[in-house]
Amino acid sequence: MENRLTSDHRTDAQVGRAQSSGLRVLLPTVLPAMLVVLGLVLPLFMFEGDQHPSKIGLGPGAWPDAILKGMSFFAALWLAREIWVLGRAGRTTTLSPPDDDLSYSYAKAIGGLVMIVAYGWLLPLTGFALTTAAFIALWCVFGGVRKPLVVIPVSLLGTYALLWVFMGLALMPLSRGVGVFNSFSIALLQLLGIY
């Protein structure tokens, strides 16, 4: 039973790897094909439904239309080259991805991207001060800096320095958040002598 599980597990891993390598093989062909379609379809969505482009001269749609068609043309040439590459072994694809798959942690990378997007999304809601302090602390922990004596001062002093430079000195209207977070940000900024 145990052997069977292990064998099943291995099979899943192998299938996963095969699928991933299959994707890698297909990607150079799929990407230019998608760009060809994108260049041909996007001009259809250039103007809002109720808008009518001016008829004087070339009009506002001429330049983007030409650019997108140009992109489609070059993407089609790229696609043709990729199909030519698939035709015979030994030919190399146009794109050359970095050769660091063994040392690259995709889980960490995706985790980092999620954190960055969450930071940007929360910023207008919870305010710059609170979100930034939390983000710096969480990022440090996620990145391997786990000592509280490092993480907490870096996060708090760093946020204070950023607040002082951008809100105090450059007078940038960075977000204070909404509702209770707004009140908290105002109180904090008054306490720090920035307001």
Partner: peptide, 22 residues
């Protein structure tokens, strides 16, 4: 440490993007 530096690069990037037009 790269993690600390990276955190500040993200924050500065976000502030930089925001600062273009507030």
């Amino acid at each position: 440490p790269p993690a600390i530096l990276a955190a500040f690069i993200v924050v500065l990037s976000v502030v930089g993007a925001y600062g273009v037009r507030n």
